[in-house]
Amino acid sequence: MIVNSKRTQWLAPVAVMLGFAAIEVISAHAEIPLGERRSGYADLAPDTKAMQDDDTANPGMLWVQDGEALWNAKSGAANRACADCHNDARTTMTGVAARYPAFNSKLGRPIDLEQRINLCRVERQQASAFAYESKELLSLSAFIGKQSRGEPIAPPTDERLRPFLEAGLEQFNRRQGQLNLSCGQCHDDNWGKRLAGSLIPQAHPNGYPLYRLEWQAVGSLQRRLRNCIVGMRAEPYDYGAPEYVSLEIYLMWRARGLPIETPAVRP
């Protein structure tokens, strides 16, 4: 961490000599070494950790329970439940959340878990798609996510994802907003430090959807990303925008190997 935060100071004189193009390449690739990657869980206060660890105290479990009810409920013109085709999620959905977003051949682009759920909603149940951040979509994705708890993040090795991964990396390192900051300047270079009262985490997506104390509710990764984008005084993308999917692909790749914690708890 210390090495990382000193990086720009070190390189500033070099940049003057080499020109700025060279340093952009270097800084874009100065990621946190794999061995130093840690979940946001590591920095939680003891009582927040305890809340996440105990299913009877973790408020996110209420969403998981609602998700289970939805999983088993017949719905749509097809009058089918998710369970009618996918059986017991405890076996069929294990590890699924750990390998999304994934490339969807029919659409010719990557989709995240929420979009995957809505595809089945529309195509298989013949029902209307759930809105982003609706109780239903959060509950189902929390329920499916929970089936991967403890599973290491394992992004698919699918060459078709590469351009989207690269787009996500580029977004992560691009300065934006009135404050002219990049995600990486906080989450790669300054993690572990304090931004006023908040500890800067490494920005891993391994707990989503999760219960955030500030929200007093479960929210998606996209909601969290929007919070950071608004904090930079940049314009957030609309929910479901392809930019969030590329960013998520990069975040999942960056967090590869970290265990899924859904539903996690964060401050």
Partner: peptide, 27 residues
């Protein structure tokens, strides 16, 4: 320092995707 994280408080150009509420205004 071209790589500083400190925002430019009196500058409106060369910024990306500034939210409408802040666009064209210095901090």
């Amino acid at each position: 320092n071209a790589h500083t994280i400190m925002p430019s408080y009196y500058r409106v150009e060369g910024l990306n995707r500034v939210a409408p509420a802040w666009r064209g205004k210095p901090i």
